[in-house]
């Protein structure tokens, strides 16, 4: 590479090695830098009130990115994340509000349904051997359409709303539990945020400390080598999509708690935003490289830019612009780090 001839190649090489070893370091640096910049531009940005608000806004996307990370580690991609999450919550809402099913049961059924959608994706990818991009592009359409058909495009409200068909007290409804707030001084989080943090801790452990986690990396890194080493590649890939589907189901739970209603069109940008967060978090699009904490930092970076740009008062269009620049820089950095092979 050209930079080898430059006088500062030694520190650069050292940096490359460091980033190669610790995938979450780059995103952590960007997160700290951008937070400090926004604090300078708008003092008070890093106050606990604002941080807790950002965490609450981040909870749903943060959960989705956990599943997306594992899929991308296998060198896959999931374009249907948002659609699956919405369909999961439609099922929960329909059952709990319109069918009068017990809220705990509705939650369980919704999460299991998420897993089944994942099984469909995983089956088509691992057994029928279709490319993940195409499969999830297809199921994106399918799940979105089913969600809209199921609801007729209408929003279902829990509890005291004027539009609610049946009044359900929010204190006794398991589906709304994720909206419960907990405060320590001026730092307030919802239980939904705790669910998100729990998912990160759990899957950071699973990826780093279990055989299943290592196989996820191995399959994304070199399918043939993994197969030769005795990893059952097809079951592994299927299981990753199922686990991701279950996580999307839990994200649906967090979403319901956050807004107290179920709507088929909350946000169609969630599909791509989850990919953005994962890529900014240092996970390679080509699989095999990345860590769960990196994704958490990546999601936080997106949120910091979102809130920060709003507080600074610039045009809202600068957010997608900033995200776009970050994504391209993240992929370019990944490219450079991977060049360590030569």
């Amino acid at each position: 590479m050209g930079w080898r001839g430059w006088p500062w190649r030694r520190p650069l090489y050292w940096l490359q090695r460091l980033l190669h070893r610790h995938a979450a370091l780059g995103p952590l640096f960007v997160l700290i830098l951008s937070s400090v910049v926004f604090e300078v531009l708008r003092p008070g940005f890093l106050r606990l009130v604002n941080i807790s608000l950002m965490l609450q806004q981040l909870a749903v996307l943060g959960c989705l990115a956990v599943g997306q990370t594992m899929i991308m580690l296998t060198a896959g991609i999931d374009l249907a994340v948002g659609a699956m999450m919405i369909l999961s919550q439609m099922i929960m809402g329909e059952l709990a509000i319109n069918a009068g099913v017990n809220s705990v049961l509705a939650l369980v059924i919704g999460v299991v349904f998420g897993g089944l959608m994942g099984l469909m994706n995983g089956g088509l990818i691992a057994r029928v051997r279709l490319p993940p991009f195409i499969v999830t592009l297809g199921t994106l359409g399918i799940f979105t359409a089913i969600g809209l058909r199921l609801s007729g495009g209408a929003t279902l409200f829990f509890g005291g709303s004027a539009l609610a068909g049946s009044a359900i007290s929010s204190s006794s409804n398991a589906l709304l539990w994720t909206g419960t707030t907990l405060s320590v001084g001026s730092f307030t989080v919802t239980t939904g945020v705790l669910v998100m943090v729990g998912l990160y801790v759990l899957f950071a452990y699973v990826l780093a400390w279990t055989a299943w986690g290592r196989h996820v990396y191995a399959v994304g890194d070199d399918v043939e080598a993994a197969r030769l080493a005795g990893v059952r590649v097809r079951s592994l890939i299927t299981s990753v999509y199922v686990v991701a589907g279950v996580i999307y189901g839990l994200a649906a739970w967090v979403q319901i708690g956050r807004v107290g209603s179920v709507s088929p069109d909350i946000s169609s940008t969630l599909n791509l935003d989850s990919i953005t967060a994962v890529v900014i978090g240092g996970t390679s699009l080509f699989g095999g490289r990345g860590v769960m904490m990196g994704t958490l930092f990546g999601a936080l970076i997106v949120q910091v830019f979102d809130t920060g740009l709003e507080l600074v008062g610039v045009n809202a269009l600068y957010l997608p612009l900033a995200e776009g620049v970050l994504v391209i820089c993240a992929v370019a950095l990944d490219h450079w780090i991977r060049a360590i092979r030569d």
Binding site: D221, G288, R289
Partner: peptide
């Protein structure tokens, strides 16, 4: 055991993970 011309190891995993790939110790 078979050693192939290529495709033997997962490049991004470390040496230990490669040695134990598919037969990890719990």
């Amino acid at each position: 055991e078979v050693v192939h011309q290529t495709l033997g190891v997962a490049p991004q995993l470390d040496i230990t993970s490669n040695l134990y790939l598919g037969r990890e110790l719990r």
